[in-house]
Amino acid sequence: SVLFYLISGNQDLYKKCDAIYDFKRHQIHLCLTEGSTDFSSGSTALIRLGFNLYNGYEDGETSPYHLFYRLDEPNRILAMSAINMRFSIY
Results as ranks from 00 to 15, higher is better:
Ile20Thr: 03
Tyr21Met: 09
Tyr21Gly: 02
Tyr21Cys: 04
Phe23Asn: 01
Phe23Pro: 01
Phe23Val: 00
Lys24Asp: 14
Lys24Gly: 03
Lys24Asn: 11
Arg25Tyr: 01
Arg25Asp: 12
Ile28Thr: 09
Leu30Gly: 06
Leu30Arg: 09
Leu32Ile: 13
Glu34Ser: 14
Gly35Cys: 07
Gly35Arg: 12
Gly35Tyr: 01
Ser36Asp: 12
Thr37Asp: 04
Asp38Phe: 06
Phe39Ala: 06
Ser41Val: 14
Ser41Gln: 15
Gly42Arg: 07
Gly42Phe: 07
Ser43Thr: 09
Ser43Tyr: 08
Ser43Gln: 07
Thr44Trp: 12
Thr44Ser: 14
Ala45Glu: 05
Ala45Lys: 15
Ala45Ser: 15
Leu46Phe: 02
Leu46Ala: 03
Ile47Phe: 08
Arg48Pro: 15
Phe51Glu: 07
Phe51His: 12
Asn52Cys: 09
Asn52Ser: 13
Leu53Lys: 10
Leu53His: 10
Leu53Cys: 07
Tyr54Met: 09
Asn55Leu: 01
Gly56Ala: 00
Glu58Ala: 10
Asp59Thr: 05
Asp59Ala: 05
Glu61Cys: 10
Glu61Ile: 05
Thr62Pro: 00
Ser63His: 07
Pro64Met: 11
Pro64Trp: 06
Pro64Cys: 08
Tyr65Ser: 05
Tyr65Cys: 01
Tyr65Thr: 10
Tyr65Arg: 11
Tyr65Gly: 02
Leu67Met: 13
Phe68Gln: 09
Tyr69Cys: 04
Leu71Tyr: 12
Leu71Cys: 12
Asp72Cys: 08
Glu73His: 11
Glu73Lys: 15
Asn75Phe: 00
Asn75Glu: 11
Arg76Leu: 03
Ile77Gln: 04
Ile77Phe: 03
Leu78Ala: 06
Ala79His: 09
Ala79Asn: 07
Met80Trp: 08
Ser81Thr: 08
Ile83His: 01
Ile83Trp: 06
Asn84Phe: 07
Asn84Ala: 13
Met85Trp: 14
Arg86Asn: 15
Phe87Pro: 08
Ser88Asp: 08
